[in-house]
Design a protein around this nucleic acid. Structure first.
Length: 426
DNA sequence: TCTGGGGTCCTAGGACCC
DNA sequence: TCTGGGGTCCTAGGACCC
């Protein structure tokens, strides 16, 4: 097979950098971004990392550190991050023949063939400079013959500043030198559980994993683990996926700002999640046939005082739909089935699945005309209005006073997308 | 007191069929 | 007494990702 060339471009400290971009006064200060509900840390600036703040740590555990070092906190502001992400991706699309947007802050590029006419490191530097100049964010670039190695190269480009933020890992010699230095859990696809089991077999570094027999890894672990070994050896198993995959499920869920003990409030919350999930469904141009609802108390509290309960239930519609009202009705019934009085609920959510492309589903002979044409005109009007002014229109069941809603006490203004913070704009 | 949200893929095991 | 074997589909759960 012909050798491939991939690059992984990843923004440095993405959420924290987005916040800093609009607060030049904080450019050298420690900044953290908090999860929904201001619950835990999900992004840290370089300075915050240096202070020892770990990814995912609950906010209440680091209050002292925050105070002592005057760390600036922000509630997560996804409208801002999504907008900045789109600017980065647009820039990449102008520079590379094929781009796979892998997550909000990283993308794979297929650079196969360009090395004939272009120095790969220089290309990486050009990407870095242009994004810095056009968007104001710093990225690192890792280049290698497989996606898994490109991930490792990117990791190294971030970790070692002498790389200048770009590492070309085309040569096998350099691949092996780097892998010898990296613990196996740094490898893409090797998480906590696998790391433990690999270590028990004496495999501690990425290089030791690369040198393990693929068949043994397949037999002891899984197909995915075997592919990882092959990718570490320069054999490309994972292709660039430049067409966005069609979703297979849509989840809407939130931890509550305050515990919910009242069924009426829970009904409102679930209605809100149904509403959000169905909006997403329509924006994907899909219909769904299955819905499930889940509720749970906190898994972290002392269960002798605050007993644990978690449950979920799934139901199927007769026909696929994208109409919020169809799902609301079923969701209420599902909640009835799993609700138990006397618990302090911490979180709930809704999942839609079993998707059909609009118009493709085979209707049965006895379907009423109503169920076929649905009420798409009404639903798309609701979406259009809500796009201009979020939450302008909603269904009565979700209530108007939301005690359970999110805490977002440190929210930054919507610098680039002004709707949410301008209540009278519309 | 206080611990995110949204996804994907793989696998084992059961149901079902011939 | 002794109760097949293999294929497919579906689902729940595990593991991983950012």
């Amino acid at each position: 097979m012909n050798p491939k060339t991939f690059a992984l471009v990843d923004c440095n400290n993405f959420y924290a950098s987005c916040e800093k971009l609009f607060r030049p006064d904080l450019s050298t200060k420690p900044v953290v971004v908090l999860s929904n509900n201001d619950g835990c840390v999900i992004a840290r600036s370089k300075e915050a990392k240096a202070l020892g703040i770990k990814m995912g740590v609950p906010l209440f555990q680091i209050r002292d550190l925050i105070e002592k070092h005057r760390i600036q906190m922000f509630s997560s502001n996804y409208a801002l991050y999504a907008d900045m992400s789109a600017r980065v991706m647009q820039t990449l699309e102008q520079m590379a023949p094929a781009v796979e947007v892998y997550s909000i802050d990283e993308a794979f590029l297929d650079l196969t063939g360009i090395e004939a006419s272009t120095n790969l490191t220089e290309f990486g530097q050009a990407v870095r400079q242009r994004i810095q100049q056009w968007v104001g964010l710093t990225v690192c670039v890792g280049i290698a013959p497989t996606k898994t190695l490109a991930k490792l190269a990117n990791h190294a480009a971030k970790a070692w500043s002498k790389t200048g933020g770009v590492l070309d890992l085309s040569s096998q010699d350099r691949q092996r030198k780097l892998m010898a230095l990296l613990p196996v859990n740094e490898v893409w696809g090797i998480g906590g559980k696998l790391t433990k089991r690999l270590e028990a077999m004496g495999i501690r570094t990425a290089l030791q994993l690369a040198d393990a027999p693929p068949k043994l890894i397949r037999q002891q672990f899984s197909l995915m683990a075997e592919r990882t070994v092959q990718e570490l050896n320069g054999e490309s198993c994972l292709a660039l996926e430049d067409m966005p995959a069609t979703k297979k499920e849509i989840v809407s869920s939130r931890a509550f700002g305050e515990r919910v003990t009242d069924k009426q409030q829970m009904l409102q919350a679930v209605a809100e999640y149904v509403h959000r999930a169905c909006s997403k469904l329509r924006s994907e141009g899909c219909q769904a046939k299955q819905i499930s609802v889940f509720i749970r108390t906190s898994p972290f509290s002392d269960h002798t005082k605050d007993p644990y309960y978690s449950n979920n239930r799934t139901a199927e519609l007769t026909y696929p739909s994208d109409d919020t009202r169809d799902f609301l009705h079923v969701a209420n019934r599902l909640l009835d089935q799993i609700w138990k009085d006397g618990y302090r609920y911490a979180k709930a959510g809704v999942m839609l699945s079993d998707f059909y492309t609009q118009g493709v589903h085979q209707q049965d002979l006895f379907a009423s005309p109503d169920s076929i044409k649905g009420n798409s005109a009404l639903m798309s009007l609701v979406d259009q209005i809500n796009e201009r002014q979020p939450n302008a229109l909603f269904f009565g069941s979700k209530g108007t006073v939301q005690d359970w809603g999110m805490k977002r006490e440190q929210l930054s203004p919507a610098y680039t997308t002004n709707w949410e913070q301008l209540p009278h704009a519309w």
